[in-house]
Computed example of a mutant assay.
Amino acid sequence: MYVLSGEVTLYVGEENYLMRAGMCAGFRANGTPHHLKNNSTDDATIIEVGTRVSCDAVSYATDDLVAVMGLNGQWVFEHKNGEPY
């Protein structure tokens, strides 16, 4: 993840970091859950590059949300108990 302009807060587990233009961060597969949030009133632009090769499910740590790769190759969103979203 690379911040092109503005500033965002990067949340990694229980920690958070203010990220400004020119700063970057990387995340290893199956690592600590993370997300970004723009807490300012100004726009921010980021580039995020990655791959989900051989990934068939993603669980969102702070939300009741799981993304599961369907048989048709498209993501299906479910609650953590398996009920459709």
Rank of each mutant, 00 (worst) to 15 (best):
Y17K: 15
L71I: 08
R28V: 10
G13V: 01
T9C: 01
G13A: 02
L65G: 02
V12A: 03
V12M: 00
A25T: 14
G26K: 12
R20S: 15
M69N: 07
T41N: 13
G70S: 09
G6K: 12
T62F: 05
P33L: 02
N38C: 09
T62H: 11
T62G: 03
Y60E: 11
A67Y: 08
F27V: 08
G26V: 05
E15T: 10
Y60G: 07
T9Q: 04
Y11N: 10
G31H: 08
E14G: 08
R52I: 07
V76F: 02
G22A: 13
N16G: 01
K80P: 05
P84N: 10
E48Y: 07
H79M: 03
N39E: 14
V8M: 00
H34L: 05
E7M: 13
T41K: 13
T9M: 07
V49P: 00
C24M: 13
I47G: 07
P84R: 11
L10K: 09
Y85S: 12
L10E: 13
G26I: 02
S59K: 12
L65E: 11
G31E: 04
H35Q: 05
A44M: 08
G6H: 09
C24P: 03
N16S: 15
C24A: 15
M69E: 12
A25K: 13
C55E: 13
V58P: 02
L4W: 14
P33D: 02
P33K: 01
G31L: 03
V76H: 07
D63Y: 01
N38R: 10
F27P: 04
V53P: 00
S54K: 14
V68Y: 04
